[in-house]
Design a protein around this nucleic acid. Structure first.
Lengths: 305, 305
DNA sequence: TGTTTTTGATAAATATTATTTGCGGATTGT
DNA sequence: ACAATCCGCAAATAATATTTATCAAAAACA
């Protein structure tokens, strides 16, 4: 690959006008530039492209005709790269890899994605669930385009935009003595066994609520799966804390949970969208962010009470 | 078109290796060169192609993926231009515009072309007839690739290669007093009416034969068409000179001619192939020249006695 | 926690390449 | 014969790519 697109461009202009002079006027370039570009091309391709007629222009050889056709096609395709680039900045089309925090995914993702694809038929959303740490790592590797998660640890180069605030709640079984309260103070649970959702950063968040009040919870069990935690709580093995408020408070084994607001001032969790800090975001990404802003607000979050 | 093929090449290597360092090793280019090429591309396309991970390579953005696909295709097509160029220097294929002197064409062209296309199925020969002057002009404009003609005026930039020698003959009607002679001297025809084939350069050639012997012919008629000249001669309106020796000496109106060698030393006509003086002739042209050399010799010319 | 290694960005120096200006030769048309 | 046109060539200049050297950030390791 020794020739350049510029040389091809000069060659095509000359081939089409049949004259270096005319080509130079068309391109606003001096004649010797074009002359040398053509010479370079001929030397590089090992083919004579023109027959020179002194003071009377040039004629394409048969090889020149063939190369001209190819060169035109190549220049056209080269211009196409601008279109491809512009498409990503202007069109809402293509694939979008959406990361979502595991405990949020079942409630939010189905409606969010469905609605978005309804609006934009040429878009394919690929949802992927994970814990906060894993999602952030994938976002940075650009394995994900956008992540729905909480305002936990946000690494450098990632922007987080909060959309809805979720205050912490207590989850107890329907048989629990406090089950019918309209709110519960953390101190009232002191000594009772805690079932802890054991995910990176989430774990630390829940424990920080206790430490903040000078309490130290008695961790009875841990699980990385929200549904396991809920089932244990529903069966009376302990209580847990959660920010999400699923509409359905019946566990998979048929038991019932109660979700009760936590009394006092505690740092709430904020659902938001995390993206890479890019100067020029693809139009598709912008549109999805806009979609999230409209659907996820303090007035309501898909799938939640 | 502000980017270059080189920049695309660097970008593709980086996209494929996921690292500027590795790309620089693969291309034997310094790392800053690649870095700047990518920056240039990003600025030019107005799209972020990579997300940089400090000390841990780069990841393609979604736009980057798309551009990478296009860039690869473009580089492939660019390489294809070399193939197209090589094809014309290596393959016997495509179209060949063959010019042939009018009076030679009916005898030579049919067999010559047929045989050549028989040997090379992928070749299309396009024969065009004309006088010497017109043929040379078309050859110079590269409207013709090769011309079969006589060794008359050969312009600059055109090469002529003689293949067969045709001495001049006298043509008279079968009733002519000299019809049964085995040779005729020009002086014997002095005073008789000459029917002249009136084509550029041919005209001058025939007259020069007379002038050379100090004779001045009595031109009774002229025609640009050989067949008209022959018919006039066959009808006894005069005699003519010719170099071609067609097998058929009967004219279109059914009369018979006699063709008798001219006595003495006269400059003969030489049939040959005229081509543009190129340093690198296309393979197709070379093959056709070779074909002509084999078929047109002093030992025989297609269609002639 | 500090040190080393890896890797990309940046700056200045250098090498390479493209471009222009100016001139000469060849051809055409008046 | 003359001017006008147009291509090629050479030297000067401008623009660009490349390298060398250095820095900064992050990861890996002790």
């Amino acid at each position: 690959m020794r020739f350049t697109l510029k040389q091809l461009q000069y060659f095509v202009a000359t081939g089409e006008t049949g004259s270096i002079k005319l080509a130079s006027e068309r391109l606003n370039i001096s004649q010797p530039s074009i002359s040398s570009a053509i010479s370079h091309l001929e030397r590089d391709l090992g083919v004579q492209l023109f027959v020179r007629h002194h003071a009377q222009g040039l004629s394409l050889t048969s090889a020149g005709h063939r190369v001209l056709r190819e060169a035109r096609a190549l220049l056209l395709q080269a211009n196409g790269i601008y279109d491809v680039a512009n498409e990503t900045t202007n069109l809402v089309r293509g694939h979008l890899a959406l990361g979502c925090f595991v405990t949020l995914a079942p409630m939010i993702v189905p409606e969010l994605c469905h609605r978005f694809q309804e609006k934009h038929v040429e878009v394919q959303v690929h949802p992927i669930e994970g814990d906060h740490e894993a999602l952030m790592a994938q976002l940075r590797k650009v394995d994900l385009d956008v992540v729905l998660t909480y305002d936990l640890q946000i690494p450098d180069g990632v922007t987080f935009e909060a959309l809805a605030t979720l205050p912490p709640h207590v989850l107890v079984s329907a048989d629990h003595p406090l089950a019918d309260r309209s709110s519960i103070a953390l101190s009232e649970l002191d000594g009772e066994p805690l079932i802890l959702l054991d995910l990176p950063f989430s774990r630390e968040y829940f424990l920080s609520i206790f430490y903040h009040e000078g309490l130290s919870p008695k961790i009875h069990a841990r699980s990385r799966q929200q549904e396991v935690v809920r089932t244990m709580v529903a069966n009376g093995y302990g209580y847990t804390l959660a920010n999400v408020r699923p509409r359905n408070l019946t566990t998979l084994d048929g038991r019932t949970l109660k979700q009760i607001p936590l009394e006092g001032e505690h740092r709430p969790m904020k659902i938001g969208i995390a993206t890479l800090a890019q100067e020029r975001k693809p139009r598709l990404l912008q549109a999805f962010e806009e979609h999230c802003r409209a659907m996820i607000t303090n007035g309501g979050v898909p799938g939640m009470q």
